[in-house]
Amino acid sequence: MAAAAVADKRPVRFGILGCANIARKVSRAIILSPNSTVVAVGSRSLAKAEAFAKENGFPGSARAYGSYDAVIDDPDVDAVYIPLPTSLHRRWAALAAEKKKHVLLEKPVALNVAELDEILAACRVNGVQYMDATMWMHHPRTAAITAALSDHRRFGKLKAVHSIFSYNNGPDFLKNDIRVKPDLDALGALGDTGWYCIRAILWASDYNLPTKATALPNVEFNEAGVILSCGASLQFSDGKITTFYCSFLTNLTMEINLLGTDGYIRLHDFVIPFQEYKAPFYVHANTKFGERAISIEPEPVEHIVSTDLPQEALMVKEFSNLVQKIEREGGEPEKKWEIISRKTQLVVDAVKASVDKGFVAVEVGE
Rank of each mutant, 00 (worst) to 15 (best):
Ile82Asp: 02
Ala94His: 09
Asn35His: 15
Pro85His: 05
Ser27Cys: 03
Pro34Phe: 09
Val109Ser: 14
Asp69Gln: 15
Val39Arg: 00
Leu84His: 00
Ser27Asp: 01
Pro75Leu: 09
Ser45Thr: 01
Gly57Pro: 09
Ala93Trp: 07
Lys25Met: 12
Ser36Met: 04
Lys48Ile: 06
Asp78Glu: 09
Ser67Asp: 06
Val38Met: 03
Asp69Trp: 11
Leu95Met: 11
Arg24Ile: 04
Pro83Asp: 05
Asp78Val: 14
Ala93Ser: 10
Val41Ile: 11
Leu95Asp: 07
Glu98Ala: 11
Leu95Asn: 10
Ala97Leu: 09
Gly60Phe: 12
Thr86Val: 15
Lys48Met: 06
Lys25Asp: 10
Pro83Phe: 05
Gly66Asp: 05
Val41Cys: 02
His89Gln: 11
Asp73Phe: 12
Leu46Val: 05
Lys54Leu: 08
Arg91Phe: 13
Lys107Phe: 14
Gly60Lys: 13
Asn35Pro: 15
Ala47Trp: 09
Ala96Gln: 08
Asp69Asn: 15
Ala70His: 10
Ile31Val: 10
Ala96His: 07
Asp76Gln: 13
Gly42Met: 02
Lys99Leu: 05
Lys100Met: 07
Val71Tyr: 06
Ser33Arg: 00
Val77Glu: 03
Leu88Cys: 13
Glu50Asn: 04
Arg28Glu: 12
Ala62Ile: 00
Glu50Met: 02
Ala94Phe: 09
Arg24Gln: 03
Ser43Arg: 01
Ala47Glu: 13
Leu95Cys: 04
Leu95Glu: 15
Tyr65Ile: 09
Tyr68Leu: 02
Ile30Ser: 02
Ala29Ile: 05
Pro85Ser: 07
Asn56Gly: 01
Tyr81Lys: 05
Phe58Ile: 01
Arg91Asn: 11
Ala53Val: 03
Gly42Asn: 05
Pro83Tyr: 07
Ala51Leu: 07
Leu88Asn: 10
Pro34Asp: 08
Glu106Gln: 12
Leu104Arg: 14
Arg28Tyr: 12
Ser43Asn: 15
Asp74Pro: 13
Val77Tyr: 05
Ala96Glu: 13
Ala64Cys: 12
Gly60Thr: 11
Ala53Arg: 03
His102Ile: 09
Pro34Trp: 11
Pro34Glu: 07
Lys100Phe: 09
His89Tyr: 11
Glu98Pro: 04
Ile30Asp: 02
His102Arg: 14
Ala97Cys: 08
Arg44Trp: 02
Gly57Tyr: 03
Tyr65Leu: 08
Arg24Thr: 04
Ile82Glu: 02
Arg63His: 13
Leu84Pro: 01
Arg63Val: 10
Val41Tyr: 02
Ile31Ala: 03
Ala47Met: 06
His102Gln: 15
Ser45Val: 00
Lys100Leu: 07
His89Ala: 04
Val103Thr: 12
Ile72His: 06
His102Gly: 13
Lys99Asp: 09
Thr37Cys: 13
Ala96Ser: 13
Val41Ser: 01
Lys25Glu: 12
Ser67Gln: 08
Lys54Cys: 05
Asn35Trp: 12
Ser43Ile: 04
Tyr68Pro: 04
Lys101Thr: 07
Lys107Gly: 13
His102Pro: 14
Val77Thr: 06
Ile82Trp: 03
Asn56Asp: 03
Val38Ser: 00
Ala51Val: 07
Asp74Thr: 10
Gly42Ile: 02
Leu105Ser: 08
Leu104Gln: 15
Lys99Thr: 06
Leu95Ile: 03
Gly60Asp: 12
Leu105Ile: 15
Pro34Gln: 06
Val39Phe: 01
Asp78Lys: 13
Lys99Ala: 10
